[in-house]
Structure formats: C-alpha cells, structure tokens
Design a protein around this nucleic acid. Structure first.
Length: 697
DNA sequence: AGTAGAGGCGTTTTT
DNA sequence: CGCCTCTACT
C-alpha cells in the first residue's frame, strides 16, 4: 500500500461500514451520503489488511459507476494494484465468467442487444405465422425476459402466466426464443447473468473455483438487483458470506424492469447475522432540499426508516412555479438559468432539468435554443446505436460468426444487392428442410444452384428466376469470405475492417443515400469514429475482434469523455438522473398523470379507475429528483397541457402536497422575476451585454 | 427498390 | 398533434 488510509476522514457510520470486513454487511446509503467513498475506502482498507487485489470483486450496474469506482480506488492505492482488482458491471462479470469457462458452455458466443432480441422475436412470430405484427414485439420480449430473470423455465412460465393474449404468445415463443439464440450461438443480456448461475449450479468445480477466487464481494445499488443477479451474487459468496451491499431502498426505481427492492429490505433475512449500517448524513444538499425530500419519501410504507440530515447552512427556499402551459414553463426554465448565470456565479453546466418522460424534452430544447444556451440531452440515441455503426458491427459479427442469423438478415441485402424477401424466404426454407443454418443455405446456393433445380416438395413449382438471385447470393458469400480472410490476415483490424466494409459497399451507400451532403458527412464520420475505436481497442488490448464486439454490446452509453459537459445545461429523465448531482435543479411537469404517470395510476386503461395502485415507485422518482439538487431546487408545472391535440387543464402532482409550505416560495412563471438587488441587476445587465458582444463575433 | 400516404400510437430502459 | 411503421403502388 503506497499511502496509509485516512480513516479519520470518514464519519463514524462510514468508518464502521469500511472496517467491518467479514461477514454480510448492509450499508443503507441515503442520497448524497458518501456511498462511493465508502466502497472505495473499503476496498483500500481490505488491501491494507493484506487481502490480495485478485480476491476483491466490486459489482455495479453501469459502466459509468464501475469506471468511477475504479478511478477513485486508483487514487487511493495506485494503478499497479488497482489494475489487479475486479470492478465491473454484473453483465461484464457474467460475460467474463462464461468466457473463462467456455469449455463448460460449449461454444463461443456473440451478444445480442435489445434490437437483436427484437429481431429474433419478430422472426419467430413470423415463423409460427401468428398472424402478423399487430402485436407489440417489445411487450412479448418483455415477458420472456422477465421469465428468464425469475428463473422460470418455459414450462413453469406457462403454468403461471396469465391468459392474456400476450402471455399466451410469450409462453409459446419463450422456448423457441431460447432455441433460436442457441442456434445462432448468441446470448442476450439476460443470459449473461442467467447462464453463469446455471453453470455454477451444475458444476461444483466451477463453483468452487469462483467462490475461492473472490473472497470479498461488494455490490453497489443493491436495491436495483433482479432475481438473476441476486442468485449470481449469492452463488459467488455462499462459501464465505463476505458480502457487502450498498444501496438505498428509497431510490429503487427499476421495479418495472424486474429489480426487486425486497432484496435490500430483506437482506438480514437472506444473510442472517448481517451487520447493518445507516448513512444518513448528507453532504450534498441544503436543509430545505432535504426536508422536502424527507417529507415526500416518508409517505412510502415499505422502507427502511431513515432520515437524511446535514450540517450545512439553511440555504434558500425552494421555488414552486406554475406556468400556463409547457412552453411557458420551458421559457421560464431557460430564462431563469440565464438569470442565475448572469447574476450569481452559476454556469449552464451547473444546471439540470429533470422530467418524467423523454417527450417532455422537446419544448425545453426549443426554449434553451431560443435563449442561446447550450444543452445536452442525456440518454437519447447513443453512438453505437446509430444505424451505420450497427450495420458495420453486423458485418463484422457475421464474418466472425456465420451462425449469427440476425446479423445475416440485417446485412444480406444492405446495401441493396438484389436479395429480396422471396430469395430470403427460399433460402430460409432450404435451411429449415435440412436443419442447417441460414448462412450454410447461402453457401449451398453458391455451390449448387438452389434456384433453378428441383421443385420444392411442399410448395408451388418454382418459376424461372433466371439465376440472378443465385449470383447475388454467391457474391454475398464471397464478400463475407473476403471479410473473414481480411480480418485474419491484414496487419491491423482497422484497415481490415475498412476494406471489408468498403467492399460491402457501406461507405458508398452512406454517401449516396443520405438526404444531404451534411448528413452523409456525419454518417461517414460516425463510421470512421467506429473504426477509430476499434483501432484504439487493438492498441490497448491486442488483436481480438470478438472481445471488442462483445464489449461494445455491453457499452451502450456514449463514453462522453470527449463531450465537454462543463458548460452545457443537462436535460435528463428522472431515471437517468440517478447518481448525478447539480447545484441547480429544475423538476418540471410536476402534474398528475405525468408524475405519478398515468400508466401507473391507471394500469388497466385510462377509463378503469383503480384505487389500490401502489405509487411508491413514482414517489421514489420524485425523491430521486429532489435529492439531485445541491443548492437550488425549482418545482415547476403547467396549468394546461395539450394531450393529443386538445389542451387539458392539469392538476398539480399529489407529491407537491406532501412538501410543507414553509419550505418554498410560490412563483408565477409569467410574472417578472422577484426584485433583484441593484448589484444583481447591474451584474445581469453586464452579463447580457457581454453575451450580445460574443454573439456578434 | 423506393416512396407516398394511411394508420396507429403515445413512460421510465443501468446492460 | 407528430412520429414511426407498414402497405401499396410505381
């Protein structure tokens, strides 16, 4: 250990959480209570006590959280030791476990992301000729995924599923979905958790190896674990129970995705003898903000009781703002940010606007643009989701793994090369008959002329197709062959990939098909950016394309290291805001049917009132929003909001009633800002002038 | 293969 | 209302 750890920098409960190293520990970490600090110090403390770095595992949900953890530990213990620790997401842990044990699994795999998964479901629907795509594929996939995460086999799922139309379809498709993935040598995100658990379950050697490897395990954001993740983790620690979980049941906002808050509520039952530490001192927000947060969340029933407090000075009251409509609300936000940046020493980067659903960002973006404030929208389409990048990835995946039918279907006729639906159907039929993969069927077509020979046994006689499709399929097979040998032979992956994609006609298509030269330029840049990141990977980790592609699948967010967020306003959903903090926060659209959301209020349709709905998760969203603010918190809403064309009067969110009136000032968004002091007005005028000057440059 | 027009839909989405 | 998807036509 390079530096002796300063445990006196911690408050007493934090220190307790850091130094209680053996046996199960539950750290209930309120918002802003120094949670990451506890985890990183705990890791450092373990190392100081002589635990080898290889024996320590820290798991989180997002790459961002994992990276941050890694960076902060590195500051404490130095890069040499930090490198030997395992700090990863659940999914990359699962992936690495499977890779390390690939003999047990039996095959190398590609990872299917959400859009690949949807592709599989869509294909299966077509196959069982469940008449058409009148069904919401997402809803079906959602059910299958839910079943997998709960470890329900297809039979078990069938037994317990409702008889809703979608339940029946999902029950029918679930086994077929799994079979298809195995055929394609693909694993979806859920499999990355579920398969390791199965493996640990059935193979005692593997189990012993991994239990022995990680002797101290930590899990961040424990309130968000689903059953599969819980099982994975408990398998890993069963031998020693040196498990420390950190989380906040009040910030559990992913229940709809299968996260079970019960895990954190019942930790002491799952791990008897658990040591429980509560971190309630908040280092982030002013008392007014915390009082509001405590007031709101105390209306929830099922929770570990706790109350955030702070030693900070009182600070200012919250602002409760009513606007006529969303446009006025948005204009208010933009102008207020302008004022804060003019008269107080805030920068746009200190400000964030939080909303329940993405559609709400639109008027805000317009107002900010009008005010000439820079902003970024968190979430949205990420770099690797862009079509041109996904197409490139599909080509590479296919070259590596020809069984990957989803990638094959994605690119077989893109760019257009004359392999239409008919040809594809014929190929698929041929594949089915012989029980071979779709790609092998393509290869057969190349070798044996599938098209003008024998009539199909079941179908109509084959009309003369004139050999053209066969030529096209042959050319396609040659292309993939060429790609494969390029990737194997060329000196570096980047140039191999570039040549391959060039040969596929991808860049030509980007140039030709774009609506404008600017768009074409942008797409080519995206493609180039992708090749750059491939190159960086090869420099760093060596020539391993499949590792690169697998990692890409797990890296959904833009690594926004390059985007400078210091001077731009952040727009983000309440879900996306978890883990972030800002000096100035605007919570907008605080109205009934937005927060709490209609779909939560009326789960059975808008005309079916339901008095028994549980609004706990919606309230926690409100709580998460409030606790993002350090100094200033604005609670805004619109009195009217258009809903499908017609304007409708809005009721304030019931959560606003839960905030004591003494904590806030009321404002009207259209009224002039409260009288500023002469100095403020002066500073504002100066700032405005400066800005005008800057604009004319 | 590409596109115009109809029709349907409208919450959140760490990996 | 506005977007996205599908369909039917060229």
């Amino acid at each position: 250990m390079p530096v002796a750890l300063r445990l006196d920098e911690l408050n007493p409960p934090q220190r307790e959480a850091v130094t209680t190293v053996d046996g199960p520990v539950l750290v209930l970490a309120g918002a802003g209570s120094g949670k990451t600090r506890v985890i990183t110090y705990r890791v450092a403390h373990l190392l100081e006590r002589g635990v080898p770095p290889e024996a320590i595992l820290a798991v989180s949900f997002t790459n961002k959280a994992a990276d941050e953890m890694g960076e902060r530990v590195e500051k404490l213990v130095g890069p040499r030791i930090a490198r030997r620790l395992t700090m990863s997401t659940f999914h990359s842990l699962g992936m690495n476990l499977l890779k390390a044990e690939k003999k047990s699994l039996g095959f190398a795999f590609t990872i299917y992301d959400a859009s690949d998964q949807l592709g599989v479901v869509r294909e299966l629907l077509r196959r069982v000729s469940i008449d058409d795509r009148k069904f919401d594929t997402k809803a079906i996939l959602f059910r299958i995924s839910g079943a997998k995460n709960k470890f329900l086999s297809p039979e078990e799922y069938q037994a317990q599923a409702g008889d809703h139309e979608y339940d029946l379809i999902a029950a029918d498709l679930y086994p077929k979905y799994q079979e298809a993935l195995r055929n394609f040598h693909a694993l979806d995100f859920d499999d990355l958790i579920v398969e390791p658990v199965r493996l640990l379950d059935r193979d005692a050697d593997v189990r012993a190896r991994w239990q022995d490897r990680f002797r101290y395990v930590m899990v961040d954001e424990y309130q968000d674990t689903n059953r599969a993740q819980f099982n994975l983790m408990s398998h890993l620690v069963r031998a020693h129970n040196n498990l420390c979980v950190v989380g906040d049941d009040d910030q559990s906002i992913y229940g709809w995705r299968g996260a079970e808050a019960g895990h954190i509520l019942e930790f002491e039952r799952h791990f008897p003898g658990a040591h429980v530490v509560k971190l309630e001192e908040n280092y982030r927000s002013t008392p007014a903000i915390l009082d509001a947060a405590n007031a709101v969340i105390s209306h929830n029933a099922k929770r570990h009781p706790k109350r955030l407090w702070t030693a900070r000075r009182p600070g200012e009251k919250l602002q409760m703002v009513v606007a006529d409509d969303p446009e006025v609300e948005a204009r208010f936000v933009a102008e207020e940010i302008e004022i804060l940046c003019g008269t107080r020493s805030y920068k746009p980067g200190d400000c964030a606007v939080l909303y329940r659903s993405n559609i709400q960002s639109k008027p805000l973006e317009e107002a900010l643009r009008m005010q000439r404030l820079n902003y970024r929208v968190v979430g949205g389409q990420s770099f690797f989701d862009r079509k041109e990048v996904k197409d490139a990835i599909a080509y590479l995946k296919l070259a590596l793994s020809p069984r990957d039918e989803i990638s094959l279907r994605r690119v077989i006729n893109y760019p257009a090369r004359g392999i239409g639906a008919t040809t594809l159907d014929r190929l698929a039929g041929h594949a089915r008959e012989r029980g071979i993969t779709l790609f092998d069927a393509c290869m057969h077509a190349r070798a044996t002329s599938l098209f003008d020979a024998t009539p199909q046994p079941s179908g109509a006689p084959i009309e003369d197709v004139g050999g053209k499709p066969q030529q096209a399929v042959t050319a396609f097979c040659d292309l993939i062959d060429r790609g494969r040998s390029l990737l194997a032979s060329k000196t570096n992956l980047k140039s191999a990939a570039r040549e391959f994609l060039e040969a596929a006609g991808l860049s030509d298509d980007l140039r030709g098909a774009a609506a404008s030269p600017i768009q074409a330029q942008r797409r080519l840049e995206n493609l180039e950016g992708f090749l750059e990141s491939l190159d960086r990977f090869e420099q760093r980790e060596g020539r391993n394309l499949s590792s690169f592609l697998n990692r890409l699948s797990l890296q959904t967010q833009d690594d926004d290291a390059e985007t400078d967020k210091s001077d731009v306003v952040t727009l983000v959903t309440l879900h996306g805001a978890k883990g972030l903090e800002f000096p100035v926060v605007f919570l907008v659209g605080l109205e009934e049917e937005l927060l709490p959301h209609r779909r939560t209020l009326y789960p059975n349709g808008p005309d079916v009132p339901d008095a028994n709905v549980d609004l706990g998760e919606e309230r926690r969203l409100m709580y998460v929003g409030i606790t993002r603010a350090r100094e200033h918190l604005y609670l805004t809403r619109a009195a009217n909001r258009a809903f499908r064309a017609s304007a409708r009067p809005r009721t304030p969110s019931r959560f606003l009633d839960e905030i004591p009136e003494a904590l806030y000032d009321r404002r009207d968004a259209s009224a002039p800002p409260p009288a500023a002091s002469p100095e403020d007005a002066d500073a504002f005028a100066r700032a405005a002038l400066e800005k005008m000057l800057k604009m004319t440059d």
